[in-house]
Simulated scan of single mutants.
Amino acid sequence: MSFLSNDVLTAIHDRAPHYDANNAWPKEDFEALKECGYLGAFVPREYGGGGLNLEEIAAEQTLLAKASPSTALAVNMHQIIVGVARHMVREGLDQGRKILEDAVAGELFAFGISEPGNDLVLFGSITQATPNAEGYSFTGTKVFTSMAPAWTRMLTFGRDTDTGKSVFAIILRETPGIMIKDDWDTIGMRGTQSNTTVLDNAQSDWILTITDPGPSTDPVVFGIFANFEVLLAATYMGIGLRAIEVAAEHVKTRKSVKNQSVYANDPDIRWRIADAAIRMDGVGPQIRELARSFDNKDELGALWMPRLSAVKNASAEASLHAVDQCIRACGGSSYYTKNELSRLYRDVLAGLFQPSDQESLHGAWAGIVLGPTGD
């Protein structure tokens, strides 16, 4: 049984074309998600939440992405931070408790990690984190900060100006020194409104961890990486699955003059849609297996991060392939912006740019299979 009702999902789906066409924040969607308790769905029951585990919230994200990819991708960032807090508490770090409590109370958490020109992403920041008596002040620029018009809390990180360590913290929206640009004008995922956020000595005393840069088993770093990759994979899976639904419905009514029959009877068209479905069929089990492994604290050792990178890439690439095949099957009508496949095509492209990218993925797996490079 889904946490998100059919009525909520249908309403979100019906609004998606409007928010995409107007490059607008999906305010009504987030009001509906808050009202139904979705901001706290991933919070354990002992903290007043819905008690869903990673596998279950991933399934919800897939359903939401089928309704509206941009709304799903935006709230995905909130769910990632809730997932980090769950992992922190499980590992004995009480700093995560307030995140869980705030999520249940309706606070919206943004993800302020990515920086312009920084391909280290999570593993090293160019933002300055300056220590002081109250905690740290952060100065730098964060890009792709989803939910920019509405977030109330933001997880961010910077480089300690004294030690060089990575400092992860939560910054409140009302904190002085935060400037949000109105610069989100993209091909797709327009409703996420992932504007650039500029930090100018923005203060935080809510420090989650201070750790060495680079891949790490630190609960915050590993919690971010694991939840990010699994939930991103689940979100993009929804796009591929929805494309197949749209295409299947379309070819059952689109008629071929040459064959005097609907395109659903054309063997070439059937092959294309079947090919899309075959690619997507392998994604769900991979997501569920890895989510269960994380929930169960399985010992995967050095394979953890390569496998997490792989699940995101598998989903993003399979969904891109599926949408492409569905567009080919449906013909020129899908080139019009009013066609849902056109929007799905633009939205799925965002998966190419989000970490881990293919270069990072292949580098990680080469290290596992071949070991370090020699002279």
Rank of each mutant, 00 (worst) to 15 (best):
Y47L: 04
F228L: 13
A21D: 06
G48W: 04
D29M: 10
V143A: 04
G191D: 05
Q354P: 15
A85Y: 01
M88Q: 12
M189A: 01
F111W: 11
P26I: 00
A103I: 10
Q354E: 11
G351E: 04
A133Y: 04
Q128D: 15
I180R: 11
E107S: 09
D183S: 09
A291Q: 12
Q95S: 11
E91G: 09
K181S: 11
I278Y: 08
L320W: 02
D324K: 08
F168T: 09
E289M: 14
N23H: 11
C330G: 06
V121H: 08
L63H: 14
L64S: 09
D185Q: 07
G363Y: 01
I239M: 02
R159L: 00
V246F: 01
F294M: 15
G374P: 12
A202C: 06
G191F: 00
A318E: 08
A350I: 03
V121T: 06
F138S: 04
K27N: 11
N53G: 08
P285D: 05
T209G: 07
A103T: 13
I327C: 03
F3W: 11
Q128N: 14
M179D: 15
K142G: 07
A148C: 05
S166N: 13
D20M: 02
D275P: 04
G301T: 08
M237R: 15
K142S: 05
N296C: 02
E249F: 00
H321M: 13
W304P: 15
K312T: 07
V220L: 05
L122S: 06
L63Q: 15
G351L: 01
A74E: 07
L344W: 00
S334G: 03
S319M: 03
S125L: 08
K27Q: 14
D7F: 05
V323D: 00
V369M: 14
L199Y: 01
P69M: 02
L52A: 06
V167H: 09
E101I: 01
A103G: 10
W271E: 15
N265E: 14
T211H: 08
G140P: 14
I269P: 01
